[in-house]
Design a protein around this nucleic acid. Sequence first.
DNA 1: TGTAGTAACGAGTGAACTTC
DNA 2: GAAGTTCACTCGTTACTACA
Length: 264
Amino acid sequence: MKDLIYYADLAKSILEDEKKYFHDKKIIKKIFELTSKNYDIHAIISRLTIIDSYYSTQMNKRYFGIEDIANKIWELYGNNEKKVETAFIEFAESPSNEIILSLFNDNYGIKKDGEEYGKAISLISKYAYFQTNFKFPIYDNLARKVLPKIFKLYFTNVKITMKSIENIKNYINAINIFKSNSRINDYNKIDNLLWLTGKIREGNLSLILKKDEYIDFVNTLKSKKIFEKEEINKDDKSSFVLKWSDLLKDEKIIEFCEFVRNIK
DNA sequence: TGTAGTAACGAGTGAACTTC
DNA sequence: GAAGTTCACTCGTTACTACA
């Protein structure tokens, strides 16, 4: 098994090869650039809506969720967007700024019955990721699941669990330990590594393959009557993808699947 | 044939539950 | 008690079934 820098570079190279993931990211980045010219509360709402849509963070399903977050971000430093960006970058390096901490720890939106919903760490971290031009680590369940397993495989002297990185402060500290231990000095590459590992583990290939590659893969499975030969357990799609990864045409993804197989 | 109703699916989150 | 896993939530879309 090679070192993590190699697999982080491989993940980046896979995802930036005209994949839907890469195009989606470019669209979101474009929205940030366009709305920066007239930065106001509506710009923030637009950005959050786009991120929510592409990353399926489901904030639109909460009543008033996006508006609440937008208001909170706007209240941070008003129309001084640069100050928001700087605060996020500093928080990523050392998560001690109480204002940013409260942004992550506040509850947003309400349920149908008017009860408070909960936090929105994932969506806010993605907003910070784009606001800082990828100088902020993305927090989501994929990363939270994968990070402890990679630690277990590569850095046995540090014990990280899903529970221990539940809050944003501990999560960022863990990412920064990961960053220095792995020498992957780039939050974007770390995100690529964790996200791609998570997606393959979960058996979700739609954002990883090009449309024709995806159709080709599914058709190959059909032609070999693989769907008929074995019961596809929807709760265990990951092992299915890893089992048949050799049928994928992309050599880089096949190699990355080898790495994912070692993540227990 | 058209309409209405039902079920399954997608994805990420947080809460609740189970296991060690 | 900590860690890990499962489940419910959310609702638009799609596919399927039942009925007029």
